[in-house]
Design a protein around this nucleic acid. Structure first.
Length: 911
RNA sequence: GGGCGGUUAGCUCAGUCGGUCAGAGCGCCUCGCUUACACCGAGGAAGUCACUGGUUCGAGUCCAGUACCGCCCACCA
């Protein structure tokens, strides 16, 4: 048994405890210290890998806390548990960060070049990795560090290649020219999910295009058609003007041609019902290469699709003087020029939604590019089937709707990125344009179409969207595509815990890819956590400066308090405001537990050897207080099991918190103190009391361990163990439910209520805290033994002495009559009268007492009226379940009795 | 434009199967005799469960609608 310092200092506890776990090798399912039951199925959590871009924030700490809670619980139950940690190379996010770093050195991606840039990136990520791993250890993650994986390691690289080739061979990956979202800042395409629709006030310009005179073929001065646009620079890419087919204003113009200014291109006026007649002028300019709607329209009408913007969003390829200008400079000049020509008909502010880059915040440009896409429809159908069939469950359930909606309307996934940091797309092109996709580490030997040698092939310069490699995470980390023991044992995994904000980015893609590539749902449960917000409800972000460093919190209050605070009061999928008070509450709780354990350890009767084995006392030796304690521990175990089964972790912490603080400490310990100090009792009785305390505390430490692993481990180490217990709590067995004693719970419960009542009455009547009041209690004979066993405790805790027992209510107060000097307390079947100290029993005291009793009477009458009204309702009696009616009747009888007694007492008090 | 969530004590939030569930923490007010704990103990005050209607014997809980707040999805120039 370890010594417990007088004060709880998490810093002294947590580091050494983590070292002990590591030394004992208990994290790995096949570690030397594992106590797993091989007969039970494995429990696997693959950690959502945090980005290597820097340090972890509170959201990560919350993730880790929840995952670790699940893993520790499963480990204690006896499952072989794998908690596999990892890191994500975070392609675009990492490049964004590194670009910022090197910019300060006057360098850029372009100035460094691909290879030097990648070297720089590798060095950068190697520098952040240890920081992040250390943070996770501080939080207490019981992860199997020996199996640590990284999305850029060789295993992941192989998985990416093989996965892509499989998808390609199966017709689910294809390369095509399509309109994609282009970020001029990041110089890459991004997926639809990375577009942030941003409301902005722009300008809607109305521009007049001149129709061609049918006779001369020259632009007419008079005949014009006015189009509305928010992006005048795209005029340079216009290939048509569209109107609605049923629009009478323009019907006659359909089929004629108009001259596009600057590029002097003559384009047709076409009819298409995508046009909204009510918007703008009802005539739309069509720029297929730079607008989603126009692209579709252009396809439909077989229009040409000139690209007029370069990668850096400068105008290009128009043959005008705008070439080389930034898109916004060009816009300004074009507007000015149009105005000068008299063709700018109108301009007005316009509220619109503009797509910005999730990473750089640049305004995205739709552009035509040849890219690789994943055909998602067939994959999405299987993913939908997984959740609809219940093979995979999403918690909280409401997210299944979101899931359904997104997967039903899913569009193909652009996976090409024009970035450097990531997995290169394993596609090679030969001079004849043939495509060879190969998962071979060194690429294909020949073009698979024409047989040209590898030396003549060029690999696609692009890399994969970072989510492509993370989308393979649950199985690539276990050795896939190889048939490894880990893959066979731990896949499919158990629970995927992550934030709801990446359900599409990540969870849906893992599900889609996993089903196709491995044939299994990658996890049976998806648990979505809510987001951590600051005390004002704001999302935490670096730019707002409200990001909290978990390490700072841990330094101050300990990892246990942080974990408890993050889990306590959090409902699944529900955002949570996080601030000091929650943290302080959690720290206070840890402190409370520490001191309670210290008391128990210090209260060991001298007749028990310090190194005695923990043993449950003989049933017959247990008094009511001891039975109550053990029964309540069982009740808590049952409730915690139920909450765990429903992933209601906030409920778990609430249950354990209440049980430890309000039951174990407030009553268990207080009742035990009286017996432990009672020299008149036989030593064996006191030993029994102590063993019951130890037993209950042992149970609570086990129940709390998944949430607060460090402090519980430390405290458990200070308690006596059984021979069958392992050396460490982390691998000890989860408590088994059972052993409730409802009668003793009720009886001790009413004695507790009596003590509370007496304390309340004393406080109301302003009885000095230190004074002892002579008290009589009427105790029904059935409760006699329990009362007698607890009599010393009632005396001390209610400060009632001498305490005399009466057999009936009628026998109360015989000794001194009914005068102003008494307090009456009714607690269930028990009733007590306490006599006020001499000198305080005056008329004023009587008024206070009467007022208190009248208040209670009023309240009881109110309840009684309610109960009677219910029972008087015939519909209730006939339709409600018999048990409910019975309960109401019993309640009524109880209230009748209570009202009677209060009335009697008030009558006795006189006026 | 669709979809989802939130609205419960001064503040932050729980509340599962409709039935004494009106709950917790913090804050607030009284009082502290008692060698585990002042990061504590005892006691207390405090809510028309956003609003309207409905279903039901019974609604914080289920249904419909309304009002705010927030989020997600969506090709209106």
């Amino acid at each position: 048994m370890a010594e417990l310092p007088k004060t709880y200092n998490p810093r002294d506890v947590e580091g050494p405890i983590y070292e002990r776990w590591l030394a004992a090798d208990v994290f790995a399912p096949d570690g030397a210290g594992s106590t797993a039951d091989p007969a039970l199925p494995p429990f696997t959590i693959i950690q959502p890998p945090p980005n290597v871009t820097g340090s972890l924030h509170l959201g990560h700490a919350q993730r880790t806390a929840v995952e670790d809670l699940l893993v520790r619980h499963a480990r204690m139950v006896g499952h072989p548990t794998l908690f596999l940690p990892g890191l994500d190379h975070a392609s675009i996010a990492a490049q964004f960060v590194l670009d910022g770093v090197i910019a300060k050195e006057g360098e850029s991606r372009q100035s460094l070049g691909r290879e030097r840039y990648l070297d720089r990136m590798r060095a950068f990520s190697e520098s952040t990795k240890p920081v992040m791993l250390a943070q996770q250890r501080r939080v207490g993650a019981s992860a199997d560090w020996g199996r640590l994986r990284y999305t850029m390691d060789d295993g992941s690289a192989k998985a990416v290649r093989v996965a892509f080739e499989r998808l390609y061979r199966d017709g689910l990956a294809y390369r095509t020219e399509a309109l994609i979202n282009w970020c001029p800042g990041c110089r890459t395409s991004v997926s639809d999910l990375e577009v942030v629709p941003t409301p902005e006030t722009g300008t809607l310009w109305s521009v007049r295009y001149h129709l061609l005179d049918e006779a001369t073929g020259q632009p007419s001065q008079d005949e014009t058609i006015t189009v509305a646009t928010t992006r005048p620079e795209t005029i340079l890419g216009d290939v048509a003007v569209a109107v609605h087919p049923d629009d009478d204003r323009y019907r006659a113009l359909v089929g004629r041609r108009a001259r596009i200014p600057f590029v002097e291109r003559d384009v047709p006026i076409i009819a298409d019902d995508v046009v909204d007649r009510a918007f703008g002028t009802g005539a739309v300019k069509i720029t297929p290469a730079h607008d989603q709607d126009d692209y579709v329209t252009g396809k439909r009408h077989h229009l040409p699709m000139p690209t007029i913007l370069a990668d850096d969003a400068t105008v290009t390829n128009t043959g005008t003087r705008f070439d080389g200008l930034d898109r916004y400079e060009a816009r300004e000049l074009i507007v000015a020029e149009l105005a000068a020509r008299g063709d700018l008909v109108d301009q007005k502010p316009h509220e619109m939604i503009i797509g910005r880059c999730q990473r750089s915040n640049d305004v995205l440009e739709p552009r035509l590019k040849t890219q690789w896409f994943i055909r998602t429809k067939p994959l999405a159908d299987r993913a939908l089937d997984a959740t609809r069939s219940g093979r995979t469950r999403i918690l909280p359930e409401r997210f299944e709707k979101t899931w359904e909606h997104w997967l039903t309307d899913i569009r193909d996934w652009n996976v090409s990125r024009q970035l450097w940091w990531g997995h290169r797309i394993p596609a090679w092109y030969c001079p004849d344009g043939h495509v060879t996709v190969s998962s071979a580490q060194d690429g294909p030997e020949t073009c698979e179409v024409c047989g040209r040698p590898a030396t003549e092939l060029t690999q696609d310069p692009d890399i994969f969207d970072t989510w492509f490699s993370s989308g393979l995470w649950p199985w690539s980390t276990l050795g896939w595509p190889d048939d490894t023991p880990d893959y066979r044992t731990y896949y499919p995994t158990s629970v995927m815990e992550t934030g709801y904000d990446i359900i599409f980015f990540w969870v849906a893609r893992m599900m889609m890819l996993g089903l196709h590539l491995t044939g299994h749902e990658p996890f049976h449960t998806v648990y979505l956590s809510g987001l951590i917000r600051d005390p004002e409800g704001q999302k935490m972000s670096k730019t707002k400066g409200n990001v909290v460093d978990p390490l700072a919190v841990i330094d101050e209050t300990g990892a246990d308090a942080l974990r408890f605070a993050l889990i306590h009061g959090a409902a699944p999928g529900q955002d949570q405001r996080f601030g000091r008070t929650k943290l302080e509450n959690a720290r206070n709780f840890a402190n409370k537990l520490w001191n309670a354990t210290r008391f128990v350890v210090g209260a060991r009767p001298s007749t028990i050897a310090e190194d005695a084995e923990r043993r449950l006392p003989a049933e017959s030796d247990l008094g009511p207080a001891e039975r109550w304690l053990l029964s309540r521990a069982s009740a808590t175990t049952e409730a915690v099991d139920a909450a765990m089964a429903e992933f209601a972790f906030g409920e778990v912490t609430r249950l354990v918190y209440d049980a430890i603080w309000n039951e174990f400490c407030d009553w268990g310990v207080e009742l035990a103190k009286v017996r432990l100090a009672d020299e008149s009792l036989p030593a064996a009785t006191r030993e029994t009391t102590w063993w019951a305390l130890v037993e209950a505390l042992d149970t609570y430490l086990r129940l709390l361990h998944p949430v607060m692993p460090f402090v519980t481990e430390q405290l458990w180490g200070a308690l006596p163990h059984r021979a069958s217990d392992p050396a460490l709590l982390i691998v000890a067995r989860w408590p088994a439910p059972g052993g409730r004693d409802e009668r003793v719970e009720a009886e001790v419960g009413s004695i507790v209520e009596l003590i509370r009542g007496l304390r309340n009455a004393r406080a109301e009547s302003r009885v000095e805290a230190k004074s002892w009041l002579p008290t009589e209690v009427a105790v029904p004979s059935a409760m006699g033994p329990t009362f007698e066993a607890l009599r010393p405790a009632v005396e001390r805790l209610a400060r009632a002495r001498p305490l005399e027992r009466r057999l009936s209510r009628e026998a109360l107060g015989q000794g001194h009559g009914s005068d102003a000097g008494t307090l009456t307390v009714i607690a269930g079947e028990l009733e007590a009268i306490a006599r006020l100290p001499d000198g305080t029993a005056d008329a004023a005291a009587r008024d206070v007492e009467r007022a208190r009793l009248e208040r209670e009477l009023e309240e009881a009458r109110g309840w009684l009226a309610g109960a009677r009204a219910r029972l008087a309702n015939e519909a209730f009696v006939s339709k409600a379940p018999p048990a409910v009616v019975e309960g109401a009747r019993a309640r009524e009888a109880e209230l009748v009795d209570q009202v009677e007694r209060l009335e009697d007492r008030l009558a006795d008090l006189g006026s």
